[in-house]
Design a protein around this nucleic acid. Structure first.
Lengths: 173, 173
DNA sequence: GCCATCATGTAATTAGTTACATGATTAG
DNA sequence: CTAATCATGTAACTAATTACATGATGGC
């Protein structure tokens, strides 16, 4: 059900085509939600059917730019202020961290190195994004989330570094 | 596919019944993975079929305690060391944070208050868990994750507090 | 005796993934 | 002219949720 509101939210912030929304999911919402185009297009059709979004522009290559309607805005507002948050998560990264303690030291070193590498890349990417945002400073209302996701990574990073340091010692069992 | 490995991991750490595993998912794995009993039981049957787990004890009330087999351990080890992590997430809390900027100040105050309350409860719960773990100190290999999940909450918390402070000001648009 | 909890399942539906499929435009 | 990207869809399958369903045990 949250894809419904994720899409409304994206369109409330700025109209866009299904294609653009797919990209925004992989970029800005990367640390919050994921959806592929094959899920997005049918959902857009449903939102349209319900009168929550509408075509605001027809462009090149048969593209349609969607915008949120007043009804859509109200639906989104109500969801955000009146409904409980679904706290359930499925985070494979966290799951793997949880399981690291089960591995033999040598295997754990391999698994941790993989994570360290990912964090290094994510950190580099973040610094690029952060620099970009700093240049804009203000016009983007979505800054906190990018920041947030990366701060999480910073936490993970510290934890992984700790674990890397004593990866040669056997796990406390 | 990760439920497969989440279950193997749980059983590698300690055998348990489907019922117990359901509870462990809601407790220790709360910040990493979620699965309900109606998903867990069929998956256990599949793991059994594949020879990755086995019944190690039949107890009261028709309960069966499952344990991981050598093949299961190897399957888990290979997954953890040789496969890429699926980084896709669906985190409604993060999604909502992302969308806070779209609300009018008054609505945002409502939404933020809801989050603040949740964090207060989570923090209280964490302190209980932390005290418990401190008493045990050592025998539990799963300490880091509980800690990690809550550290994340601490990050969210700081961010929310900041936002609460200036929730009366209009969003930077 | 009854209620809470332990314990296990299945059925119907919705959500999400992977694979298949097609056409338009632009840059080189 | 051709490869990359833009742009949109559908079909088959798997994963997950919600609802339905049942029985055992223990404490009061």
């Amino acid at each position: 059900m949250s894809l419904h509101y994720a899409l409304l939210g994206m369109l409330a912030s700025k109209p866009g085509t299904g294609y653009e929304l797919t990209q925004r999911f992989d970029q800005s919402l990367r640390n919050a939600w994921h959806a592929s185009h094959s899920q997005i297009y049918p959902e857009l059709a449903r939102l349209d059917e319900a009168g929550l979004i509408e075509v605001v522009e027809e462009g090149q290559r048969n593209s349609r730019t969607w915008g949120i309607t007043a009804a859509g805005r109200e639906d989104l507002r109500r969801w955000m202020t009146e409904t409980d948050t679904d706290r359930r998560v499925r985070n494979e990264t966290a799951l793997r961290y949880f399981l690291f303690g089960l591995l033999e030291p040598a295997d754990r070193r391999v698994a941790l190195e993989r994570e360290r590498k990912h964090l290094e890349e994510a950190d580099e990417e973040f610094r690029t994004v952060a620099a970009h945002l700093e240049a804009l400073d203000g016009p983007t209302p979505f800054r906190p989330v990018v920041d947030l996701g990366q701060r999480l990574n910073a936490v993970f990073s510290a934890w992984v570094d700790e674990r890397l340091a004593d990866a040669d010692e056997p796990p406390a069992s």
